[in-house]
């Protein structure tokens, strides 16, 4: 416990976790949100605060490989776990195939949704390396993009999934 500015006791917890593969230890208040922890404490600005109500997906990070809304998840919840943000996706200076595909398919306009989109897609492909277009749409449904119209995003994810051209699935299903 520590004494707050207005004399109210502020409980503290110590958390150890891994962020993008690196061990992190911190003393935080249980009320600290994962998004603030990542942005304000660790300077990882890839996850964005937007709707702040876990609707839009701009703050998506992966917690033990599953997408969560960092804006509505306690940093405490990440104790003992692995957090992956967009900053941790490139390996040895080489972009992740999804990042490369987003560039190649012009799946980015303003870029605000992009880190969430890519991380969500990464989680899908890890579980399900060859999703159908319908499965990609279902998984990405909770990530909103107000610029692209989604089309190029779908194409980018499909190109990495290998579900597309090799398997003749692009355009096969009604959109």
């Amino acid at each position: 416990m520590t004494e707050g500015l207005i004399g109210q006791e502020r409980p503290l917890v110590t958390i150890s976790l891994r962020v993008n593969g690196e061990p992190v230890e911190a003393v935080i208040e249980p009320r600290e949100l994962l998004l603030d922890f990542l942005r304000d404490r660790l300077g990882l600005m890839g996850a964005k605060r937007s709707c702040d109500t876990q609707v839009c997906g701009a703050c998506t990070v992966l917690l033990d490989d599953l997408p969560v809304s960092a804006c509505c998840t306690l940093a405490y919840e990440a104790r003992g776990r692995e957090v992956l943000t967009i900053e941790g996706l490139a390996q040895d200076g080489a972009l992740h195939p999804l990042q490369q595909a987003f560039i190649e398919h012009t799946a980015v306009q303003c870029g605000f949704c992009t880190s969430g989109m890519i991380l969500t897609a990464r989680s899908l492909l890890q579980d399900h390396p060859r999703p159908t277009r319908q499965e990609i749409r279902h998984y990405l449904k909770g990530n909103l993009c107000r610029c692209t119209g989604y089309w190029n995003i779908l194409k980018a994810v499909e190109s990495v999934a290998g579900s597309g051209r090799q398997r003749g699935r692009v355009g096969e299903e009604a959109t």
Partner: peptide, 9 residues
């Protein structure tokens, strides 16, 4: 239910 993030948590 909700979206993939809500379903995960």
């Amino acid at each position: 239910v909700g979206n993939v993030r809500v379903r995960a948590m």
